[in-house]
Write a protein that binds this DNA or RNA. Structure first.
Length: 573
DNA sequence: GTACTAATAAACAGGT
DNA sequence: TACCTGTTTATTAGTA
């Protein structure tokens, strides 16, 4: 820890007045660095000695100490790298000032200023690899890190090699022990397909590219050439830095994207007098509600901009399709296209905590939410009260204005044929007729006979996802559009040539882990006495003018309905 | 402008 | 009587 403090002091000294570094100061830093290296060497040897003196049986303890040593090494060497980079740049700067050399534009970077913006170009990385690889691999030549566009760089330069190799202990014992563990860490059953360091018959160890005819040979090569020695350690470190840089870059891109989205969402929209506080979720509200788990649930001002609040910064899930395109929510619902292009479980799962705590209206229809609630239940059935509870526990948004949304829930339960009321011993529970649910979806997509008549393009609801959203989703590699492989028409009778809506229909059958749940079988709801509702969606089906609610035990009428639906599905196909 | 969908509000009936 | 549950109708707003 002494080391760290010392190095940090050096670095900070170097960074304090980057513009007035004189050659003398550079010299001073160099001396300090040499001093540090010697000190570090001594420390390391001491630790090594201690390790050797340990009882050979106490492997666990030894490993722990090795880990500590490695950690210390890492910290120190990272500091060293940073310092050397600074040093190098300062040196170059001073040389440039003296007119000894001319630097290409952008390279005369002052550490504290342009360094964070200065990218670690592939060439630099390559040089870095060459350096840490040392003469051993100098002949290997090209290291392909193409595509790396690191806009930030807090470390690394082309002169790190000496320090790294110098700073590394000789440690034959060290490498032998770790070499063994290294071999253990590469199980033999690992296939060439799965090994990240092997591909196309080439060792993909950075800077290596040795040709290995088969995987066995590769393993041999890996164990012999890339055992855990100083060189490999240094290479590993560099790779860590590369990853670190990429992560920084990623976070920056994320921020940029978020800023873009915020900007787009915050476009001033004309406040409408008909807007109701309940349905408006302002960004101010989100900011207020996000940090607090308990929903204060204050009514929002009707004049608040209708900027949809999105869980942009919720963990790894940076953007959801919903959040990306839910900007159209003005009055009380988000864009239909958006809602239909969403997979409830795929959307809600990563943002569960968000919706739970933030007073944000979920971008799903009541029907979707109700279905999800029922599907999450143990027996795929819930009482009305349990549905209410699910709403309130899952979404902070539904912890207020109960009368409104509860009415909506009841309304939806009654309205949609896909929700089946089942008489139970305890009372009535609601289940989902998955077949009907999917049929409804497919109808929306392909259009009912009536709809088809009226739709000039025949695209129906499937075209709802606008081009910009699709482009955005495609650009962001949203799995939603990439999971076309999940699509098949076996269960839903969906037509081929999947629209996003269709995809949503299928994805809705996936559980939170993305697996298809057998519990979602459309047939399982028919086991119990059910009430069949006729949904107003299909006016053609309503031949029977009787009460819209009938009780049946999987009656022939039901079979007829299923039969009709089957035909319909076939027609749609 | 039209058709469609979803949200919302409200009325109503039946049950507890 | 009040409340809950369930159904139905009407209205409104967004979208294609």
């Amino acid at each position: 820890m002494q080391i760290c403090v010392c190095v940090r002091a050096c670095v900070s000294v170097a960074m304090m007045s980057p513009q007035v570094i004189t050659p003398q100061q550079v010299q001073q830093i160099l001396q300090q660095q040499q001093h540090l290296q010697e000190f570090y060497k001594k420390q390391q040897e001491q630790l090594h000695l201690q390790l050797l003196q340990q009882h050979p049986g106490k492997q666990v303890k030894e490993q722990q100490q090795q880990q500590q040593l490695a950690a210390q090494q890492l910290v120190f060497q990272q500091q060293l790298l940073q310092m050397q980079q600074l040093q190098q740049q300062q040196h170059l700067l001073s040389l440039q000032r003296q007119g000894l050399i001319s630097l290409p534009p952008g390279q005369a970077a002052l550490p504290g200023q342009t360094l964070p913006q200065a990218g670690l170009s592939p060439v630099e990385l390559q040089q870095l690899w060459k350096d840490v690889t040392g003469p051993h691999n100098m002949d290997d030549g090209v290291i392909k890190h193409g595509g790396l566009d690191l806009s930030t760089s807090s470390s690394s330069s082309s002169t790190t090699s000496s320090a790294v190799s110098k700073a590394s202990p000789p440690g034959a014992h060290h490498s032998m022990v770790n070499g063994q563990s290294r071999r253990e860490s590469v199980p033999q059953e690992e296939t060439a397909v799965s090994h990240s360091l092997y591909g196309h018959g080439v060792c993909k160890w950075p800077g290596c590219e040795s040709i290995c005819d088969d995987f066995g040979q590769f393993l041999k090569h890996l164990n012999s050439e890339h055992a855990l020695d100083d060189r490999s350690t240094a290479q590993c470190r560099v790779q860590m830095q590369v990853v670190q840089q990429l992560e920084i870059q990623l976070s920056k891109e994320r921020e940029r994207l978020q800023a873009m989205m915020t900007h787009l969402h915050m476009r001033p929209s004309e406040p409408k007098p008909s807007q109701k506080p309940l349905n408006l979720v302002s960004s101010v509200t989100m900011l207020k509600t996000l940090p607090s788990a308990s929903p204060p649930l204050l009514p929002q001002t009707p004049t608040a901009p209708a900027a949809p609040v999105t869980p942009l910064s919720q963990g790894p899930s940076v953007l959801s399709p919903a959040s990306m395109a839910s900007g159209g929510a003005i009055r009380r619902r988000h864009s239909d296209s958006i809602k239909h292009s969403l997979s409830m479980c795929s959307e809600i799962a990563p943002n569960y905590e968000f919706y739970k705590n933030a007073d944000v209206r979920p971008p799903f229809t009541y029907a979707t939410l109700i279905r999800q609630a029922i599907m999450e239940a143990r027996d795929n059935q819930l009482t009305l009260n349990e549905i209410y509870s699910w709403f309130t526990t899952t979404f902070a948004y539904f912890r207020r204005n109960a009368a409104t949304w509860k009415n909506a829930v009841r309304h939806n339960l009654s309205l949609h044929k896909c929700f089946v009321r089942v008489e139970n011993v305890k009372g009535a529970v609601w289940t989902v007729d998955e077949l009907e649910y999917q049929r409804r979806r497919s109808q929306k997509m392909t259009g009912s006979p009536t709809l088809v008549k009226n739709l000039p393009s025949g695209l129906g609801y499937g075209a709802a996802l606008n081009a910009s959203l699709q482009a955005a989703l495609a650009e962001s590699n949203m799995p939603l559009l990439g999971n076309a492989g999940l699509m098949n028409s076996s269960s839903t009778g969906l037509i081929h040539g999947c629209s996003p809506d269709q995809l949503n229909g299928c994805l809705d059958q996936l559980d939170s882990n993305g697996h298809s749940s057998p519990a979602y079988s459309p047939l399982h709801t028919y086991r119990l006495p059910i009430h069949i509702k006729e949904e107003p969606l299909n006016m053609d089906d309503e031949d029977c003018p009787m009460s819209l609610v009938t009780t049946a035990n999987h009656s022939p009428e039901l079979d007829d309905r299923e039969l009709e639906e089957g035909n319909l599905s076939e027609d749609l196909e």
